[in-house]
Amino acid sequence: MEIIAGIFLIAGLFLLFVAAIGILRLPDFYSRLHASGLSETLGMVLCFIGLIIYEGFTFTSVKLLIIALFFFLANPIGTHVISRAAYRSGLKPWTRKGD
């Protein structure tokens, strides 16, 4: 069980790492939002699955599940609010053609 949990955690941490690389590599604010999307969806979920497997079926794992669900509902709202603020204040997205 601990080994399976470890595999999930490592997969999740790998995605978080990729997201960090993406934030550094991508050219502008909007495209960086996509990179952070990696960490906040699958990366986070894989970490939580790992923790739930490690914990077994207890109240703690149910609480972890509730946290994961809350993440899924609340996260896109945050991303949307940030990107809309940028869009409405007139930040132009970076494009290949304009380069």
């Binding site: 996509h34 999307g37 969806t41 996260n75 896109p76 991303t79 949307h80 990107s83 869009y87």
Partner: peptide, 21 residues
């Protein structure tokens, strides 16, 4: 927004403005 690669930037009425990577 949850699907990586697309972010909903603005929704006005039924008009969706989406940034795709």
């Amino acid at each position: 927004t949850l699907t990586p690669g697309t972010v909903t930037v603005d929704v006005e009425g039924d008009l969706y403005v989406i940034h795709a990577l």
